[in-house]
Each structure stands twice: as structure tokens, then as C-alpha cells.
Design a binder for these strands. Structure first.
Lengths: 172, 172
DNA sequence: GACCCGATGTCAGTCGCTGTCATCACTCTA
DNA sequence: TAGAGTGATGACAGCGACTGACATCGGGTC
């Protein structure tokens, strides 16, 4: 990340990274499937947390509420790492290749969220829809949170976005 | 596309494509920025259609209705090319690299949709949200349409998905 | 001390992609 | 009609991401 922040992602070769880490290029690729993968370590753990929380939401909760419960858990997780999140976002936003990677990550969230919802008895167009919109809400709250200069509360931003969503969908 | 369908995307080199087209590899890259780009020709035209239709929706229409109007135009456009759409989807679904490309395409839709909505006077969290959820609706309807064996109506699937969305967001 | 095994280094090679320069058809103009 | 300009293409060299195959080495086991 230091190298990426200094010179940018494209101007950093895998050889550079490997050298800085004191290993061979070949060794780098044994630890990371991809050059981009360095920035997405632990992503699967986050997804697991999300899924677990949604699965564990009270039975009485509707699909969107269950998803919200999961997102709040993520908010808590990220809240303490605001500066790190900002720097990471800056790097990712600067490179299309990385933005793509970020998008598949979120798409993977949506897929597994839909699966969990189906497991909770939500029928199918609704499950997929709740999953996708939940992710959309997260994405927007995330942008606002990392954009915001003030010391805003991520969880609250998510909550507000859900409120906006309801307003938008019920209007007219 | 023929080559991709035969051997798969990864097993088709740019040299293969160029040879089949009777040109040099270098020439290929002068026409397409990317090996993937072959499958995404005309994508910008589709996006423009979408944006234009949303911009031209009646002023009285709410954000989500305006987006819906745009999506219906796309439905009409795609309706006649169902087999082509299916084949394309099969190729794309089979390769992560291509799925990524598809996702940025949709993300670009969302971005420009949000912009148009802002131009229509929709304030910001709502504009972004309506754009993202609209794209989510499209994605899901698209999947159902291309999955479906019967001769289903794409526009109607979109309409139904919007209905589902309202049901999901208003529930509890 | 012999053995095994997992992590690492080494090397060669493929493929996507780019910069550079030459070639060639085609058009415009004096 | 000759010659200059122009845009598309070919030819070639090169970089960087990534992979497969094999050698090496260090630590733990019997």
C-alpha cells in the first residue's frame, strides 16, 4: 500500500513490491493470486461477517431489516479504521482496474446475501432484490462516509440511506 | 464471438482473433482498447439511450419512474435480440474477467443516471439511490429474462421487479 | 543421520498490450 | 498528372503480469 500510495498502482510493478518485501516475484504470486489482491486481503472475512449477521437476524425481521443488521455490523467494523479506509478508497478510485475488483467484491456480497435470504424463506425475486438494494445502500453510505470531512457515524449514514430508499420507492 | 463460444475466452488469444479477422494483432488493438472490448461494442450507445430517455421523462415523474422509463426503452431494444443476448451472457458468465467488465458497465449506468436525476432536481442521496436501485432492478430482470425458457416479455419483467422492490422496501 | 515436506528461488516461456517506424493506398491540390 | 499529405495497416521490439517445472533449503520426525 505504501508503494501504491507513493507512485500509484500502475507505476508499481510486482517486482517492486516483491523487492520491498524482500522476496522473489514468484513468491509474491504464491501469496496473492493477483497484483490487485494485495488490497483485498481479508475481504472474504468481511463477507463472512456480513452473511453471518444476516443469517442470525431475528426471524421476525423482514429481508431488508435482516440485511440492515448485517450492514450495521460492517459499519462497526470499519468505524475505527476511517483513515485506512480513506486511503484505500483513494488508491482504488484512482485505478479502473481496482474499481472493477471492488465491484466484483460487492457483487459477491449481493450474491451471498440473496442466498442467505432465500435460506430465511424469502422467495426469489424479492431475495435478490433486497440483496442488491442493500448493497446499493451500503455503497452510497460508504461513499458519503469516506467523503465526509466531519467525524460522521457510518452506521447512522447507512440508516439514513435506508430511510431515503423507502422515501424514494414509495413516492408516487 | 464465434471463437469465444467455441474455445472460451481464456483459450482464445488475440492473435487467434486477429488471424480470423485477417488482420494483425497490432491492428486489433487499434480498434479495441482491450481484448474484452470486443464484447462491449456499442455499450456506450445503450447508455446514451438510457440517459436520454430518463432525461426526457415527464417532469411530473418521480425519480424511480423516470429511471423506469429509461429501462423500458432498453427492454424494447433488447427484446428482439434475445438469442444474441443469451449467448453473450453465457460467454460473460463463464469468465470472471468479463463479469468485471459487465459490472463497470452497469456502474457507469448508475453514475450517469444519478447525474441525470440531479439535473431533474432530485437531491443527492435520493438521486444516487434511485439510480443504483434502478440498475439493480434491471440486473435482476435481465437475469430472469435470459434465464427464462419461455418467450417472456422483458419490459414486463422489469415492471414486475419494480413492483417487488416496492413490496420489499415497504414491508415492516 | 536419513527422510520428508513446505516454503522459496530460478528459469524459461506465454500472453496482453504499447511505442516506433516503415509501408501503402487514397485524396487533395498545384 | 506529379507530388504532397493523410489515415490505416504491417513489422518489430519490448515491458509487465502471470504460470509451470524443477532445484534448493531449512526445520521437524523417526
Amino acid at each position: 500500500m505504501a508503494l501504491f500510495a507513493e507512485r500509484g498502482f500502475d507505476n508499481t510493478t510486482v517486482a517492486d513490491i516483491a523487492e520491498r518485501a524482500g522476496v522473489t516475484e514468484r513468491t509474491f504470486f504464491r501469496h496473492f493470486a493477483d497484483k490487485r489482491e494485495v488490497l483485498f486481503e481479508g475481504a472474504s472475512a468481511v463477507q463472512e461477517l456480513l452473511v453471518t449477521k444476516v443469517a442470525g437476524a431475528p426471524e421476525s425481521a423482514g429481508p431488508l431489516d435482516a440485511v440492515a443488521a448485517g450492514l450495521y455490523a460492517l459499519a462497526e467494523l470499519f468505524q475505527e479504521r476511517r483513515d485506512f479506509s480513506r486511503q484505500r478508497r483513494a488508491i482504488i478510485d484512482a485505478t479502473p482496474e481496482l474499481r472493477e475488483r471492488e465491484l466484483i467484491k460487492l457483487a459477491a456480497w449481493a450474491t451471498s446475501l440473496a442466498e442467505v435470504l432465500r435460506g430465511r424463506g424469502v422467495p426469489d425475486p424479492a431475495a435478490a432484490l433486497a440483496a442488491e438494494t442493500g448493497v446499493a445502500v451500503f455503497r452510497i453510505a460508504w461513499e458519503r462516509w469516506t467523503d465526509d470531512d466531519s467525524d460522521s457515524d457510518f452506521r447512522q449514514l447507512i440508516q439514513e440511506s435506508f430511510g431515503e430508499l423507502k422515501a424514494v420507492t414509495t413516492a408516487t
